[in-house]
Simulated assay, not measured.
Amino acid sequence: MEQIAYVNGSFVPLSEAKVSILDRGFLFADGIYEVAAVLDGKLIDNASHLARLERSVGEIELALPETTARIQEIQQELVKRNNLVNGMVYLEVTRGADTGRDFAFPKGVKPTLIMFTSTKDIVNAPSAKTGINVITVPDLRWTRRDIKSVALLAQVLAKQTAAAAGAGEAWMIEDGKVTEGGSSSCFILTQDDVIVTRQNGSEILPGCTRKAVVALAEERQLRVEERAFSVEEALAAKEAFITSASLFVQAVVSIDGKKVADGKPGPMTNRLREIYVEFAKATAV
């Protein structure tokens, strides 16, 4: 049975899902996207993703063509139509298609809204037990990384470099400090049992899973410090891990070929993953 997608008000077979070649998302990367995880047929932490969507479109003066309540209804309908049990729902909104290719915002153009699903067993992913290796690369991105833009070429290059090296993720480095992963937020656990992750700002995307993990850790009286850290500090740490909607909490066991601690997922990472999965299932919609 062919997968169903959503395009500008219609549910259509994926093979028929099309947008104009004049769409500004295609021509200028003039758009915003979000990815929400699905567990047991329900959306995970979706309110956080929709709030970030509203913030991102607001930062580029892009009006959503539907309310966030309606967007969630569409997401849930896609999950239902595709019989999706575990996976993700991708959504993208662009400024729409104009008749020309002018850089300035066009007038009287309706934004484009598309969505589709993919299957992935995030909870039982083999890498959750083994951990992943990461490599470091220079951070080549623009200065407004807090906006979840569809302009992802720097991340594509970073993750391709990681894939070519047999690594599961790339950590991007700027001014000697880790900003974030190609598609994830970065954490370490210091020798003093402090969970460290970079503070939010224009240098990084405010990760939804990151936000939830920090809150869940603080609720359990775990010490959390939001600041930048170096690769050297990560290699000296007890544990390192990443978070994202597409993998939840994932242990990092080596950086640039050097082991983090004993080169295995640590107890804090494993516990935070368990706590997050419990939270995800309890709050799914």
Rank of each mutant, 00 (worst) to 15 (best):
D139A: 07
L50P: 06
T117L: 06
L43Q: 11
S149C: 12
N82W: 07
R141Q: 05
P126H: 13
I60A: 08
T67F: 12
R141A: 01
H49I: 15
D139V: 10
D146S: 06
E73Q: 09
L84E: 07
P65C: 08
R141L: 03
F105V: 00
K110W: 04
A63L: 05
D98G: 09
P106T: 04
L50E: 09
E73H: 05
K107M: 05
G87C: 10
G41W: 07
N82T: 03
A69M: 01
G58P: 06
P106F: 02
G41I: 06
E61L: 13
T117N: 03
D40P: 02
R52I: 01
R101W: 11
V134M: 12
S56V: 03
G96W: 02
E92L: 03
V89Q: 11
T130H: 02
A97Q: 06
L152S: 04
E61D: 13
T119I: 15
E61Y: 10
R95Q: 10
L39E: 14
T112M: 09
K42R: 15
L84N: 09
I60S: 13
L140R: 15
V137T: 11
P65E: 08
D139L: 11
E92G: 05
M115G: 02
N82K: 06
A69S: 06
A47N: 08
E59R: 14
E59C: 10
K129F: 01
D98K: 08
N83L: 13
R81G: 11
T68Y: 01
K80H: 08
R145L: 12
N83D: 14
D98M: 10
N133M: 11
V85M: 05
T67L: 13
V137W: 08
N124G: 09
M88C: 09
N83P: 00
R70P: 01
I122R: 00
R101V: 15
E77D: 15
L50S: 07
N82L: 03
I132D: 07
S149R: 15
I71H: 07
R144N: 14
L64T: 01
Y90P: 05
I60V: 15
P126W: 07
D121A: 07
E66R: 11
T94D: 08
A69I: 06
N82I: 00
P138Y: 03
L78M: 07
V89M: 14
S48L: 15
M88P: 00
D139Q: 10
E77H: 14
R55F: 08
A151I: 10
I147P: 03
D121I: 04
G87L: 10
E59M: 12
K148Y: 13
I135Y: 13
D98L: 08
G108W: 13
T143M: 10
L113T: 10
D139E: 14
R81M: 11
Q75D: 04
F105T: 00
N83W: 01
M88N: 10
E66Y: 12
K148V: 00
E66P: 00
A97K: 04
